[in-house]
Amino acid sequence: MLEVPGNAADAPVVEVAREEPAAPVRRRGRTALLIGGAALLGLVAGACTGYLIQADRRPTALPPLSQPQLAQAKGKAPEPLSAARDGQVRTDGDLRKLLLKKPRGAKPADWTPGDGWMDLDAYAETYEEPRNMFGRLIADEFRRAAVTGWEDGGQTVEVRLIQFRQQESLEAADSTDSSQYWADREPETDSWSVPGTGNGMAYVHHRPDSDPGYLPLYAAEAHAYRGDIAMEIWMYDSKPITKARIMDLAERQMERL
């Protein structure tokens, strides 16, 4: 027999709420399964019926492909370009004939080759590191170079046309870009675009080279290219060189290419 404490009757009665069971999930009955199966069979049957109907029909003929007859040109074919108008023929000929002519009264430069051709070795010697440049020019598909130059009073001019084979890359453009890069780095230099070239630039360097015992030497240069030929013009004078002088040479030389 259990012993009940004396104060048990006075203790408050705590009611514990009964937890209602969770509502059961309604099962999907056989009726729903039958309806779903019937709908699926209906779709399959409809597709098969449509296929059989289309299979029994004759194919619809498509309209024939047609193209309007092109009008043919009549008369003689145009004459081929003359050598004077065909740039490829002109530049594949004697490159020296495309160089500017020496001004009347000017003295031929004694530092340029007598026959007007500058071979690979001679052209590489115009750079600060000839040995390295020799190999690079071979890799750059150097083809040939024509050069002319003259002295007129205190002024000296040298004009070069450098031609590349360009079977692998556009080396004439790359050569011009390189020359323009270095010209731009010279201090106290002004530059202008050469009209009619799209890429040519002319430069005037205002700071002269001054060596003891010598007159100051001012410089100007121009660089452009057309096709596979890069043009280089170098001008030196004991007096400052104007934009008009270097620009005149550059424009007239590019007109000949």
Rank of each mutant, 00 (worst) to 15 (best):
M1T: 14
M1H: 14
G6C: 10
G6P: 12
G6F: 11
N7V: 06
A11W: 06
V13I: 09
E15M: 14
E15R: 15
V16N: 13
A17V: 14
A17E: 14
R18T: 15
G29R: 07
G29P: 09
T31S: 15
L34S: 11
A38M: 09
A39D: 04
L40M: 12
L43Y: 08
G46S: 07
G46D: 03
A47C: 07
C48G: 12
Q54P: 01
Q54H: 08
A55M: 07
R57T: 11
R57G: 12
R58E: 15
A71D: 01
K74M: 13
K74E: 15
K76S: 10
A77S: 04
A77V: 05
P80V: 03
P80D: 01
P80Q: 02
L81S: 11
A83L: 02
A84F: 06
A84L: 09
Q88R: 14
Q88L: 12
D92M: 06
R96I: 11
R96E: 03
R96M: 06
L98C: 00
L99E: 09
L100F: 10
L100Y: 09
K102H: 03
D110F: 02
T112P: 00
T112R: 11
P113G: 01
P113K: 00
G114R: 13
W117E: 10
D119R: 03
D119G: 06
D119Q: 04
L120V: 02
D121V: 11
A124W: 02
Y127D: 09
F134I: 04
R136W: 00
L137N: 05
A145I: 05
A145G: 05
A145Q: 08
V147F: 00
T148G: 07
D152P: 09
G154V: 03
V157M: 07
V157G: 02
F164L: 03
S169I: 13
E171H: 10
A173N: 02
A173W: 00
D174M: 13
S178M: 05
S179V: 03
Y181H: 05
P187Y: 01
T189C: 08
D190R: 08
W192F: 00
V194M: 03
P195W: 02
P195R: 10
N199D: 02
H205M: 08
H206Q: 07
H206L: 04
R207W: 00
D211L: 13
Y214V: 07
Y214P: 00
L215V: 09
Y218A: 08
H223M: 05
G227I: 00
D228A: 07
D228T: 12
I229E: 08
A230Y: 13
I233V: 13
W234V: 10
W234E: 14
W234N: 14
M235F: 05
D237K: 08
S238Q: 14
K239H: 12
P240Y: 11
R245K: 14
L249A: 05
A250M: 01
A250Y: 00
E251D: 05
R252F: 04
Q253D: 01
M254K: 03
